[in-house]
Structures are given as C-alpha cells and as structure tokens.
Design a binder for these strands. Sequence first.
DNA 1: TTTACGATTAACT
DNA 2: GTTAATCGTAAAG
Length: 193
Amino acid sequence: MSSTRPRLRCADLVNFSAPPVAVAQALIGYTLLVDGVGGRIVETEAYDVDDEASHSFRGMTPRNGAMFGPPGTTYVYRSYGLHWCFNFVCREAGHGAAVLLRAIEPTHGIEVMRARRRVESLRNLCSGPGKLAQALGITGALDHRRIDAPPFVLVPPDVASVVNCGARIGISKAQHLPWRFTLSESDFLSKRL
DNA sequence: TTTACGATTAACT
DNA sequence: GTTAATCGTAAAG
C-alpha cells in the first residue's frame, strides 16, 4: 500500500462560521439524522447577506428570527402555507445567512420515512425541501434549535464528495447566482442540475 | 385591515 | 408542459 498518500481527513464538523456558499458546499455528503432518521445530504442552497432572495434581506421579522441567531442555529419556516423547509444558520449571529437543505439520499429509517410521506419510491422520499422535512419529521417545533444537539446528528462523510453547482430553484430574485450545490451523479436530487 | 405572494408539491394534460 | 392546493407573512393602504 502506498504510504505516501495522506489519509483523507474530513473536517470534524462543518464550520458554520464560514460564509453560506462554503457551508452549503461542505455539507454535501454529510449524513443528517433527526431522531435516527435521515440520510446523505445531496443538495443544498446558500442564502447570504445582501442576497435579495433571502428571507433575511429585509431584516428580522417574527418568522425569520432564527436566521439571526448564532452559526449552527436551525431555521424552519413554512413554505406556500403547507410545507416545512429546513435551514442551518452560518457566518455569524445577526447576519441572517443560512443554508437550505433541498434533498437527501435516504439511508436511515427508510420505512419510517415511507410511512410519513406515504410514498414507496426512494427517489421521491426526500427529493425536495418540503419532502425531506416531511420525511424527517421536521416541523416548526424544530425552529431555532441547535444542529449539534438532539434530535439532530450530523455525520461527516468518509470520502470526499464531488460537488456541482448551479442556479437556485424557485426564487424570483438574484437568479443568476450559482448557489445551489449538488452531489455529482446523485439520483436523489429535487431536479437535475 | 386588505392584499399579494411565495426558498413547493402533486396531479393533471 | 400547466395548474390547483393552501395559508402564513409582510408590505401596502
């Protein structure tokens, strides 16, 4: 065996003090579990300060308060009146920067997720922000919590991930920014890149 | 108080 | 490809 090749060392945990674009990229390949249910993160989007598409762009409101918490804070909001979407805060407290989780490859608690989603197909279980929140049991009750505390577990990948980027989905402002990140070749994305 | 609109999804044609 | 569902939020009046 080659003794010169350095062992690939992944960060112990994502540095949530980094800008959201870096965090969104770094999170690809991590395994997210909520009460033991979840899988590999395969799609994220970054929402930065001075970003017209971000909920925090116009300052703090009752809904987006968690976005202005310290790095590692969870931000859960309701989308279109019926879906929940799950974010991690990054940069630093008060900036309102965050990363949206958009898709997960199911690996843990698949039957639980199938029951919650009432869907059989693995590909349709967590392939979208609303879908993954439903599958993992994420609701507004998990807003403004810490990602490094129960019920959350974030496990680093054991191999480097090949990450692609492209335009974010479902926004009307700042559409040109390539701030959507995906695991290359993944079959579990919300939409092909 | 009123109104317009989503960081979406599922079910259509 | 198109559109209905569905309602909290925030901007406007």
